[in-house]
């Protein structure tokens, strides 16, 4: 559906990830699974490297014992402006919407997996199986989110259902969506406020201020020019050199 030009770019959603606050606690990971009907990751899925985590926390080691550090970084779909996953999809199942988001349309997806091959961030997940929950556990599934079927690619949606709901409510109330009103499940859960979500078009939004801060950088952007809408804020460490050299 083609949008009239004047409606384009009302919002441009983005996120900042302050690595200096992140403790690697995994609260974001589980909150995302509960919100977005991710299938249960059984033991065999981990062995096959087919476990689903729309947001994951990677851990990197630096230095050697006893001067060793573990660094954590949450990785999710970067919602790139120049997304390598988008042009390779033969059926437009993944495309860039007018709010800065990389969107996945499940009932278009035919499972070529070209998008996952093209994504340098490895944040796309393919349903190799029909997801299965015991009947009782299906009570918990979120009715706002599609349960994806076998053969379909999926990934972080910035909790688009929450964005839709907030925009509908704001429209109904005759007001603009307030900064901070929309929180994807990971952002809401994160106990250290590592994750901040908001409108990058609003210069006064918290996320805009943070991404314009001195510590902001984007993953792989210097090399690939993917122009992610997820900005990272660098970890502060004054003795990084000492650690690196043990």
């Amino acid at each position: 559906m083609v949008q009239p030009a004047q409606q384009i770019a009302a919002h441009h959603w983005g996120m900042t990830v302050d690595v200096d606050r992140c403790t690697g606690c995994q609260a974001c990971v589980v909150a995302c699974q509960a919100e977005n009907n991710l299938p249960i990751n059984l033991e065999e899925h981990f062995h096959q490297k087919r476990a689903f985590e729309w947001i994951r926390v990677e851990r990197y080691w630096e230095g050697e014992f006893p001067n060793i550090k573990a660094r954590f970084i949450p990785i999710l779909c970067q919602h790139c402006e120049n997304a390598p996953c988008e042009p390779v999809c033969p059926v437009y199942a993944t495309y860039h919407n007018d709010q800065g988001m990389n969107v996945q349309v499940y009932n278009r997806c035919v499972g070529t997996r070209y998008c996952a091959n093209g994504c340098p961030y490895q944040v796309r997940f393919f349903n190799y199986w029909e997801p299965v929950w015991p009947e009782a556990l299906r009570n918990q599934l979120n009715p706002d989110v599609t349960v994806r079927s076998r053969g379909v690619m999926e990934k972080c949606s910035f909790c688009v259902q929450r964005i839709r709901r907030a925009r509908i409510e704001a429209k109904r109330d005759g007001r603009a969506v307030a900064d901070g009103e929309i929180q994807p499940a990971c952002v809401q859960a994160c106990p250290t406020n590592t994750l901040v979500f908001g409108d990058l078009n609003d210069p006064n939004s918290k996320v805009s201020k943070l991404r314009n801060g001195r510590r902001a950088y984007r993953l792989l952007n210097d090399a690939l020019r993917t122009e992610p809408n997820v900005y990272y804020l660098a970890r502060v460490d004054n003795d990084e050199a000492e650690v690196a050299h043990g």
Binding site: V2, A5, Y92, Y95, V105, V145
Partner: peptide, 21 residues
């Protein structure tokens, strides 16, 4: 062709679009 005509929005009605509950 004007660029905005290629901004392809999803016409599909996924639960994410409906927000009925």
């Amino acid at each position: 062709i004007p660029e905005e005509e290629f901004v392809v929005q999803s016409p599909s009605s996924l639960p994410e679009d409906l927000v009925r509950s």
